[in-house]
């Protein structure tokens, strides 16, 4: 198979250069564009597998460019922005972005996110193959209940029995918030007493395994002062 082609769009040439270098080291092919319009043009010229797109750019800003691209293609788009507000993230994601990375980013994290998106995009066929009734899919998370196996962006992840039970509970009830007591009673099958700490430690471990950046979890979220949940994502 050909190397995946990644289009990097930012008005800051140094940043584009740095990201390109990072990705080339990871054995990707890179295309560069410095504004929204030329990014859309580049997209017409050759096949692109993933776009890293800055939001604030001259000529055509990132969000408008993304809307144009989405009219034609379904490729993963990672937004890259100095805007760190939750509202900015929500806006970007709801307008069609697959991920949102804030500047200044840490290079390994960016690489990890690119990999994750590409895996999902390239192995779309595998997803469908595994997609039977006993499988729950939430975003990049896929739980095969029969095999007792969790896949993150198609990659199998090793979880302990308890961890798997917690993930199963939260995934089957995606979007619902569970308190530590509820989780304990349903996973351990024992009466809960002072279990907050125990549950939280497990949650932390799971997060470290399934999240790219455990400090900014995408799937397994702590609802502070209330409980835990797995976000409902298409």
């Amino acid at each position: 198979m050909d190397k995946p082609v990644i289009l990097i769009v930012d008005d800051d040439r140094e940043i584009v250069g740095a990201i390109a270098q990072l990705l080339i080291k990871e054995d990707y092919e890179c295309e560069k564009a410095y504004d929204g319009l030329s990014a859309v043009e580049k997209l017409g010229e050759r096949e692109i597998h993933l776009i890293i797109l800055d939001i604030m750019m001259p000529r055509l800003d990132g969000l408008s460019a993304m809307m144009k691209i989405r009219q034609q293609k379904n490729i993963p788009i990672i937004l890259l922005s100095a805007k760190t507000e939750d509202s900015d993230k929500i806006l970007g994601l709801s307008m069609g972005a697959d991920d949102y990375v804030t500047k200044p980013f840490s290079p390994p994290e960016l690489v990890a996110r690119v990999k994750s998106q590409l895996r999902r995009y390239m192995r779309l066929g595998d997803y469908q193959a595994r997609n039977n009734s006993d499988t729950i899919t939430i975003g990049g998370l896929q739980l095969d209940r029969a095999a007792k196996q969790l896949y993150v962006d198609g990659e199998p992840v090793k979880l302990t029995y308890t961890e798997l039970k917690i993930v199963e509970l939260l995934m089957t009830n995606a979007g619902n918030v569970f308190s530590a007591e509820e989780i304990y009673e349903r996973v351990w099958n024992e009466e809960a007493y002072s279990v907050e700490n125990t549950v939280m430690v497990h949650i932390r471990r799971i997060r470290e395994k399934i999240e790219i950046n455990p400090k900014e979890p995408k799937y397994l979220k702590v609802v502070w002062g209330i409980g835990y949940k797995i976000e409902k994502i298409k």
């Binding site: 940043i15 740095a18 270098q21 100095a82 840490s106 390994p108």
Partner: peptide
């Protein structure tokens, strides 16, 4: 702080590259 972030991104990225 916004204007600081852009050059900082480059610095971090290139330092990372340099480390490799």
């Amino acid at each position: 702080s916004h204007d600081l972030k852009t050059p900082l991104t480059s610095i971090i990225s290139y330092v990372d590259l340099l480390g490799k």
